[in-house]
């Protein structure tokens, strides 16, 4: 059972989940979390990830394959920094996101409840992004087995505690 903790000093807008490790079971758990969050918002999704921990060319290749016409993937030549924008999160994308989460040192998955993405959110903090637009931001912090989820004041978290 994962420990889901609400951090009250952030007005109930920040929760953390521990411990989510790079195992088959935890990747599935992570997929379920992202799936529930994306189901509760209906807008664009913006994924930024950087600092790969190993050769990630296979993961990026997979991401390019599942990319749809309107999706946009932008990566530096060495895959050090990547940004991916999409309108719909498919099952294959969810699987790929779970691989990305554990392969990169820094990840910020932004799920918006709006039909557009605010400008200049690249390399911004979760609270800046969630204050700009109704959204969830799933990100990594100091502990790499902890999933942090920040949200805007005006939206509610979906039920996450029953995910096993």
């Amino acid at each position: 059972m994962k420990e889901v903790k609400e951090h009250n000093d952030k007005n109930g807008c920040l929760i953390s989940i521990k411990s989510v490790k790079d195992t088959d079971a935890d990747r599935l758990y992570f997929i379920n979390v992202i799936s529930r969050l994306s189901d509760s918002v209906k807008g664009y999704s913006y994924f930024q990830f950087s600092r790969p921990n190993y050769n990630v060319s296979d993961i990026i290749k997979e991401l390019r394959i599942i990319q749809h016409t309107n999706d946009k993937l932008s990566c530096s030549d060495d895959y050090f920094e990547c940004v991916f924008v999409c309108t719909e999160i498919s099952v294959s994308l969810l699987r790929c996101l779970s691989l990305i989460w554990f392969a990169f040192d820094h990840c910020a998955f932004c799920l918006f409840d709006t039909p557009s993405i605010p400008l200049n959110i690249d390399r911004q903090s979760w609270y800046y992004i969630t204050s700009m637009s109704r959204s969830f931001v799933v990100f990594k912090g100091a502990e790499d087995d902890v999933v942090w989820i920040g949200k805007s004041n005006s939206i509610e978290y979906p039920l996450l505690v029953d995910i096993t």
């Binding site: 190993y54 050769n55 820094h106 903090s125 609270y127 931001v137």
Partner: peptide
């Protein structure tokens, strides 16, 4: 670590560049 907010980051990170490789890290 920009997404984690102000003053969050990694002080020291020595990592072996392979899946499951060695890591020494202070955050």
């Amino acid at each position: 670590n920009p997404s984690a907010g102000e003053n969050a980051g990694t002080i020291f990170f020595l990592k072996q560049l392979e899946k499951g490789g060695a890591q020494f890290r202070w955050d």
